[in-house]
Amino acid sequence: MTEPLTVGFVLDGLVALLLVGLVFRLLRTRHLFEAIMLYVAYGLTLALAWVRLGAPDIALAEAALGAGVTGALFLNAWHRMAVRAGADERLPMESDP
């Protein structure tokens, strides 16, 4: 009985590490599109964390609203910003490191 608990602990630790790493990279990056995709991945990982915490209904809401709808809205807003930046060429949206 103690072995599944240990494996579950490793899984929880990996989820937590992934969350912290994702947020760190998301806050540090200067590339806007990469930040949106990292946000979507963060929503998925956070839903996994809710599942591991025993709250599948919150995981459902997080996956559907937090990652899905918000990610699509971010993509829409990013497209408008990029089109506007391409119109007057002041903001280079694609500044790959």
């Binding site: 599109f33 559907a64 899905g68 709808v69 990610g71 699509a72 829409n76 949206m93």
Partner: peptide, 19 residues
């Protein structure tokens, strides 16, 4: 829900996001 979500992101990208 997860299965639906990835499709929403990809279709939103192709329809609106691809600059």
């Amino acid at each position: 829900i997860f299965a639906l979500l990835a499709v929403v992101i990809s279709v939103a990208f192709v329809k609106r996001g691809w600059v």
